[in-house]
Measured scan of single mutants.
Amino acid sequence: MALNTPQITPTKKITVRAIGEELPRGDYQRCPQCDMLFSLPEINSHQSAYCPRCQAKIRDGRDWSLTRLAAMAFTMLLLMPFAWGEPLLHIWLLGIRIDANVMQGIWQMTKQGDAITGSMVFFCVIGAPLILVTSIAYLWFGNRLGMNLRPVLLMLERLKEWVMLDIYLVGIGVASIKVQDYAHIQAGVGLFSFVALVILTTVTLSHLNVEELWERFYPQRPATRRDEKLRVCLGCHFTGYPDQRGRCPRCHIPLRLRRRHSLQKCWAALLASIVLLLPANLLPISIIYLNGGRQEDTILSGIMSLASSNIAVAGIVFIASILVPFTKVIVMFTLLLSIHFKCQQGLRTRILLLRMVTWIGRWSMLDLFVISLTMSLINRDQILAFTMGPAAFYFGAAVILTILAVEWLDSRLLWDAHESGNARFDD
C-alpha cells in the first residue's frame, strides 16, 4: 500500500549564491595573561575582544583620537594649579581661619623630617597626573615632529594605576569627618577644581587605549598563520617573532617567553612588605597634641575612634588600611606557593584573586592621604596640633611594595603550573 505524501511548494523562490571570495581570516594573537594562541577576527570600533580561555580583555573598544586626548590633557593642565594650590577646605580653629590644600599637606610631611613619605604622596597625587598630561601632550606634538614615541607609550600603561586623584578625593571626605570634632569646616574653591580634575582624569584614563596608539604610530604586520613560536610582548602586546637582537619589532624591548626574574622580584617585594606591615600596624601612625597632652593612634585605634562619629567612614578606612593590605599579602603568598608547588586545582579562583588584588591594591594609600591633609588643617603649635607617627613611612612603603609585587608577577606562570593543553579552566 503506497502512502500519498503531499508536496510542499515554497511560496518564495530560494536563491543560492556561491561564495565568490575567501572568507576573511583572523590574525593570530597570544593572550598576555595566559599565553593562549588564538585567531582574533577583525574588530570594529566600539567592540571589545576577550581571550577565549581566561576571559582577559585583549582589545578595548573604547578609543579616543589623539586630538581629543590632547584637549583633555590641556584642560587638566589648566585645572591643576587651582586643584593643588587653592584651598580645598576652610576650618575655623580657636577663632582663626585655616586653609588646607594639597601642596601644603605634602610640605608639612616633608617639613617634619619625613621627606620619603611626603614624596610618596607627591608622586601619586601630583607627579603621576602631571606625567600623564605631559605624556599625552608629548605624543600629540611628537607625532607631528617625527619624534620617538616608544618610551612614552611604554610608560603610559604602567602609569595608570599610580594616578590616585580619586583616592585622594575620598581622603578629603575622611579628613573632614575627623577634623569636624575640633573645628567648623567649609569647602574651599580649590575643592571644585579638584573634583573637576578627578572627573576629567577618570574619563581620560578610561578612554586612553595605549594598544590602539601603538597600532597608529607603529603598525606591524600581524601573524596570519598559526605558529607556536609566536611570542607576545608584555610592553606593547604585539604578537610576532623577535628581531635579530631578540627584541620586539614594535617597542624594541627584549621579547622573552616569560617575564625575567618574575618570581624572585615578586618574592622579594612580598617578604619586604610583610616585614614592614608589622611596625606599620604596631607603631603610632598619627599623633595629636591637645592642650599640651599627647595622644597617639595606631591604624586600628584611629579607626575605632573614627567609628564613634561615623561608622560608615570608619568601615571604608578599615577596608583600605587593614583589610586590603593583608588580603593582598595572603593572596600573593598563596599564588606564589601554588606556582612553586605546581598546583593544578582552583586555577579559576587564583586568576580571579590576582585580578582582584590588581584592582584594589592602590586604595591602601588612602590613610597616607588623610594624614597629609589633616596635617595641613590642624597645626596650632602646642594648643592643638596633628602630626604623623613613625608607622606612616612603614605603611606607605608596604603598600608600594605590594603594588610592585602584583605588577611583577607574570600571570602566565600560573598556567605553566597548571596542566598543559587546557582550553578551559575551572575549579
Results as ranks from 00 to 15, higher is better:
N4L: 05
P6V: 06
T11I: 06
K12L: 05
K13C: 05
K13F: 07
T15H: 06
T15N: 15
G20R: 07
E22N: 09
E22Y: 08
E22I: 09
P24Q: 07
R25G: 08
R25H: 08
R30Y: 03
P32M: 05
C34M: 00
E42D: 05
N44W: 05
H46Q: 06
Q47C: 04
C51F: 07
C54E: 00
A56K: 10
A56C: 06
S65G: 09
T67N: 08
L69V: 07
L69C: 11
A71I: 09
M72S: 05
F74V: 07
T75P: 12
F82D: 04
A83I: 03
W84A: 07
G85Y: 04
E86H: 04
P87E: 05
L88F: 08
I91R: 00
W92Y: 02
G95S: 15
G95E: 01
I96E: 01
I96H: 09
V102Y: 06
M103W: 03
M103H: 03
Q104W: 03
G105R: 00
T110L: 05
G113Q: 11
G118I: 01
F123I: 02
C124A: 09
V125F: 11
V125D: 07
V125E: 04
I126L: 14
G127N: 02
G127K: 01
L130E: 08
L130N: 13
L130I: 12
L132N: 06
S135N: 06
S135H: 02
Y138R: 01
W140I: 15
F141V: 15
G142F: 09
N143I: 15
R144I: 12
R144L: 15
L145G: 02
L145N: 05
M147S: 06
R150P: 01
R150A: 04
R150K: 15
V152G: 03
L153C: 11
L154H: 11
M155I: 04
M155W: 02
W162L: 03
W162S: 02
D166Y: 15
G171W: 00
V174E: 00
I177W: 10
Q180W: 12
Q180T: 14
D181C: 01
H184V: 05
A187I: 09
G188P: 02
F192G: 07
F192S: 08
V195E: 03
V198T: 15
L200H: 15
T204R: 01
L205N: 12
L208T: 07
E211G: 12
W214R: 03
R216Q: 13
R216M: 08
P219S: 14
R221I: 14
A223H: 13
A223G: 14
T224A: 13
R225E: 14
R225K: 13
R225N: 13
D227K: 15
E228Y: 11
K229S: 13
L230P: 12
V232I: 11
C233M: 00
C233I: 00
G235M: 02
G235A: 09
C236D: 08
F238E: 12
T239F: 10
P242N: 13
P242E: 12
D243W: 08
G246S: 11
C248V: 00
C248T: 00
P249H: 12
C251M: 00
H252F: 06
H252W: 04
L255M: 10
L257W: 14
R258L: 15
R260K: 10
Q264H: 04
C266Y: 01
V275F: 08
L276N: 12
L276E: 05
L278T: 11
I285H: 00
I285V: 11
I285R: 00
I287T: 09
I288Y: 01
I288C: 01
Y289I: 07
G292P: 03
E296F: 15
D297V: 05
L300M: 15
G302Q: 00
M304E: 14
S305I: 09
A307F: 13
S309K: 01
V313M: 14
A314I: 14
A314Y: 11
I316S: 13
V317T: 00
V317P: 00
A320N: 01
A320Y: 15
S321G: 01
I322A: 11
K328W: 00
M332G: 09
F333K: 14
L335Y: 03
L337W: 14
F341C: 13
Q344T: 12
Q345V: 13
R348F: 13
R350I: 06
L352W: 12
L353S: 13
R355A: 14
R362C: 04
M365H: 04
L368A: 07
V370P: 01
S372L: 03
M375C: 03
S376G: 04
I378H: 00
R380E: 00
D381W: 06
I383T: 02
F386P: 01
F386W: 01
M388V: 09
G389N: 01
P390R: 07
P390H: 11
F395S: 11
F395H: 12
V399L: 07
V399P: 03
V399Q: 04
I400W: 07
T402N: 03
V406P: 02
L409F: 07
L409P: 03
D410R: 00
S411P: 08
S420F: 10
G421D: 03
N422L: 06
R424Q: 12
F425T: 13
